[in-house]
């Protein structure tokens, strides 16, 4: 699966670069508008180390951000699943927070938390958590009556058991959503770095944009893409391992 993901990414990236080059040569555009293959290769050889490290830096924040958002989504999803006042309050609050564009909230975070690790982490988690929350809320709010009936009828139902049953019954959906949210976590971190950080690949892209250097941006996109492909494949493999261990299939 890992190899498949990497190959798929290489294919997509090659297609993307191919289209850009086709545009460049057919419209006779300069290297300023679209860099040539030599320029891209030169940028890759001079920048691979610093961009690779910047991407890993971003990735580490994205992973922590995703873990935080999974915990957050599960916590809110578990509390919000109940049709109580608190449950409905949490749902409304979660939807409202998502309604504010992150670029509007980012300066506030920047003032409160500075331009370091925490701001990046929070922005990554905020962008990543909402789709997760929607899935978790949906799953946790929907009773699995054919299993839960016995525990309710006999007075054995506890919230932990309820969560366990609903998680187990929707394991495929949950692992897919979590693996998919990796992309959002990475995108969130990059947005955070772009707006309010002094490190990471998002910050590097910002500098490249100031310098109007598309070659650097294309190389940054390459590193981002390959890292996401590997991370997502690893999450999918982890999901399969968890499913095997828990369901015995």
């Amino acid at each position: 699966m890992l190899l498949k993901r990497i190959l798929q990414f290489f294919l997509l990236y090659a297609l993307f670069i191919g289209c850009l080059l086709l545009l460049k040569y057919s419209l006779q555009l300069s290297d300023y508008v679209i860099p040539g293959p030599v320029g891209m290769l030169q940028t890759l050889t001079t920048k691979y180390r610093s961009y690779g490290l910047a991407t890993l830096n971003t990735m580490s924040i994205a992973v922590i951000g995703q873990v935080v958002s999974v915990i957050l989504a599960f916590t809110l999803g578990i509390i919000g699943r109940q049709s109580t006042w608190l449950g409905s309050f949490i749902k409304v609050a979660a939807y409202n927070i998502q309604a504010y564009p992150i670029v509007a909230l980012a300066p506030i975070l920047f003032i409160l938390l500075g331009d370091g690790f925490l701001t990046r982490l929070l922005i990554a988690a905020m962008i990543c958590y909402f789709p997760l929350l929607l899935s978790v809320l949906g799953i946790m709010s929907k009773p699995v009556t054919d299993i839960e009936h016995f525990y309710r009828a006999t007075g054995r139902m506890r919230w932990q058991l309820e969560v366990k049953i609903r998680t187990f019954e929707n394991l495929n959906q949950l692992t897919t959503v979590i693996a998919g949210s990796a992309t959002l976590a990475m995108a969130g971190t990059i947005v955070g770095e772009f707006i309010a950080a002094n490190a990471g690949i998002g910050y590097t892209i910002r500098i490249a944009l100031y310098q109007s250097d598309l070659a650097k941006i294309l190389i940054a996109l390459f590193f981002i893409g390959i890292t996401i492909a590997i991370y997502q494949a690893m999450l999918e493999l982890l999901g399969i391992a968890i499913r095997r261990a828990w369901t015995g299939k």
Binding site: L29, S30, D31, Y32, V33, P35, S212, D213
Partner: peptide, 24 residues
């Protein structure tokens, strides 16, 4: 370069970077 504008405003560093990459 893409023909979407005829005249424009750019800073000197932008101009020099663009010329270094062959922008006409």
């Amino acid at each position: 370069e893409l023909g979407r504008a005829d005249f424009g405003v750019a800073s000197a560093d932008q101009v020099l970077r663009a010329r270094a990459k062959g922008a006409p």
